[in-house]
Design a protein around this nucleic acid. Sequence first.
RNA 1: UCGGGGAUGGUGUAAUUGGUAACACAACUGGUUCUGGUCCAGUCAUUGGGGGUUCGAGUCCUCCUCCCCGAACCA
Length: 506
Amino acid sequence: MEARTNFLQEMISEDIKKRRFNRSIRTRFPPEPNGYLHIGHAKAICLDFDLANEFDGTCNLRFDDTNPDTEDKAYVEGIINDLKWLGYEPEIICYASDYFDQLYAWAELLINDGLAYVDDQSSAQISEQRGGFGKPGVESPFRTRHSEENLKLFRQMRDGAFPEGHCVLRARIDMQHDNMQLRDPVMYRIRHASHYRTGDHWCIYPTYDWAHGQGDAIEGITHSLCTLEFSDNRDLYSWFLGKLPLSDQAPYQTEFARLELTHTVTSKRKLRDLIDNGVVSGWDDPRLPTLRALKKRGYPASSVRSFCKDIGAARTNSRHAIELLESYVRVKLNSVSQRRMAILKPVKLTITNWPDDENGDPLVEWREVINNPENELDGVRLVPFSGTLYIEEDDFKVNPPPKFFRLTPGAEVRLRSGYFITCNDYVENSSGELQEIYCTYDPDTAGGKAPDNRKVKATLHWVSAEHAVTGAVSLYDRLFTAEIPGEATGDVMDDLNHQSVETLSN
RNA sequence: UCGGGGAUGGUGUAAUUGGUAACACAACUGGUUCUGGUCCAGUCAUUGGGGGUUCGAGUCCUCCUCCCCGAACCA
């Protein structure tokens, strides 16, 4: 795969060339601890970390924990582990809640500068006054409160004098602005809830907009990358930073398109619904696109990383075919996986001319089998071969369709690393189900090679009946039949693939 | 309705920044093969539409069309 440059790399190169920052490149990955990471986050993570690495910078992991109602410590730990599995190590692990004191102090600063005010209206009133697309908003009657009063009220908010919803702190920007984000956005709201890190120390919590850019500035972030839906927040991001006394050049925000994949969902709400409704077994169900699920399914982290690296970044909304991700997994697995033989749906196969050993029992031969045809260094293993074997039900057909190359009555095939066998007979039960297959083997084809160089059309997997170990295997398919789940009816549940898992055991 | 963003094959990303559409996935043909895997070869777009500038336009100008995001005390 060719590594192509994306617009973010060009942008950072340009900043370096123009010496936009007096410090090294610094990025951050800012998840909210209210769910686990999925493949969409993986793209953001790879972008944040790889960009930093590429330009000799660093990347922080910062938990955006400004909403005590929905966040939890368990998610923090889960996310840290998921990130580690993906193969990245943050420069530091930090939390928006680390900055609550600084944020509070800066809020008082804005109040003193007449740039923020306490609004006693309900959220419904504020929402209504915000106006709409093309309709300017109207100013709150509390917008002209004096700084001293605002400061007094804000401190009372902090000290728990008011119930939830009684008032909020708003930035004083412009109720007529075309960008709705700048119509006096809320900076603090009252929540009498305990926070998983700060406990009951605070009863006012900063909003995303008031916390995010400030956290970036505190950490010395240079490039704050996020997804497209935050585009309109960018002006607000810059506005806040422009009003604060910062010693470094302020970071700036750039957006890229989030990763969407066919036949799956990545919204936290939809994932949660699937779990809560018992459609899947949990956050790590192998049919989910969460990192812990991919891990459980056996996806190598490196293939997830190369996938993310190669899809790059752009500002175009798009949806990648899930097959592309799968192809990265296959490429990786094909090169590193040691092969083993297992029979999922067994049918008994007896070799009628197989010899006995000196005790009169069927001879057991230990055949040498290559572990990985892609890598000689993986060596070989010995596998027991005898006169009674299991082969895959699908590998035998009494009445073969055209182009069926495997075992049929009268046909000769190879048992991988074993012998050539020819089917002479088979037995079915009264209901026509296959019971057993009878074959003869050619002793001259040991190891699967014929001395006369005759070809055989198929090579079958097998397992010695006497030595076989039982087990259970789950075969997972995609969770949704539709490319875009829910596109037709609006409900993703309507597009569920009801055969997304098949568990076989014996 | 207003603001912001976007449009290159079946899918997604690229195009030395105005120089003759590349790479991957998918599909289809054929070949190889001790995994119907892998591998190899081949086929598959004149860039949303119109007009313009130019020797030359996916790249510049202009008009149009369509798509996405935004009116939480969510992030």
